[in-house]
Amino acid sequence: MTAALHATTPKSDDKTDARVVRRRLGPGRRIRFAFWIGPLLALAVWSVGSATGVIKPAILSAPWDVAVAFEDQWSNHDLPGNILSSLERAVIGLTLGVVTGAVLAVISGLSRAGESVIDGPIQIKRSVPTLAIIPLFIAWFGIGQEMKIVTIALISLVPIYIHTHNGLRGIDGKYAELAETIGISRGDFIRHVVLPGALPGFLLGMRFAVTSALLGLVVVEQYNAVAGIGHMITLAEQYGQTDVIVVGLVIYGVFGYCADSAVRLTARKVLAWRQTLEG
């Protein structure tokens, strides 16, 4: 009983501290759709700059010109097919990277033997940019779809592993003491304490993994792609179509922003029990 009471006391203090911090920072009321304010403000600045001539068309096409180019690509070219092709590469590669990174993190985080085998190679890979390994991947897998998916998977694996592993290793030792006191088995302790405790780290890693996957997508689609947003940008570069290039960049940006927003919203729902500055 004493141990349980002692374990729950910091939680109450954390809640009080979080409320105090939020009150000192400002009103705690959340703004609806706040994540769209920044992008809309950037669009407004872009529009005003283009309309007033501050942003020259040679430097950056105006938003209305980009909208016309988007409509032309959608109606007269295969923009929907290019979008689906890019999404397919990104989703398959990201899924493989997330699953592999999470499994490796769990093995390494819950086992000293697993950590000794897995953690070293991952840390070495962390210091070697994945994009620098692309020539080797081309030699192994060719320049087809396999190389592109493997690159995206590997570039998104590392952040998932790092943050999930840190989350597993960062579980408060007081929970282990409490589990021993009340006689929870190791399996139940892992399922009900360790894995939920590592979930914030996993979701943080997901945000970095999504960004990394899109970075890898941008690069690999420059290699002999016959479909995809990168293929469209490459063709537009050859013909000097800056408005089409901006269309591709905007689509990449929308991909990334929507994916990151989805992860953030998921984290907010899943981790509703945690008192943070966001809450």
Score class of each variant (00 low, 15 high):
E221V: 07
S86Q: 04
I124Y: 02
Q222H: 10
L79G: 00
R89C: 09
R264G: 10
P39Q: 13
I31T: 15
I138P: 08
V117W: 12
I233M: 13
H192W: 05
L131V: 15
P121S: 12
A259P: 03
P200N: 11
E146S: 13
P135C: 08
K15P: 00
H192I: 05
L79R: 05
L110V: 06
G81S: 07
A259F: 15
G53Q: 05
D72F: 04
G187K: 10
I31N: 11
V103E: 05
I182S: 02
L249H: 04
N82K: 04
G97F: 12
V106D: 11
L277F: 09
D14V: 14
A225M: 09
P80N: 06
N166A: 15
E278Q: 14
D65H: 08
W64R: 08
Y239N: 05
A90R: 02
I124T: 09
G142S: 12
V99S: 02
P200H: 10
V218K: 06
I162V: 15
A44P: 02
K15L: 12
Y175P: 10
L249V: 12
F33E: 11
D243C: 01
G253I: 03
I55G: 03
H163V: 00
Q73I: 03
G216V: 03
P39V: 08
V220C: 07
Q73P: 01
Q73L: 04
I92E: 05
V117H: 06
A44H: 03
A44L: 09
A153C: 04
I149K: 10
K15D: 08
A236I: 01
A51I: 07
G49D: 07
I160F: 10
I245P: 02
L195E: 08
G170W: 08
V20M: 10
D65T: 07
T130L: 15
K269E: 08
S86K: 02
A213D: 08
R23T: 14
A179P: 00
H6C: 02
M232P: 00
L41H: 06
V68S: 02
E146A: 14
A62Y: 02
A227T: 09
M147S: 10
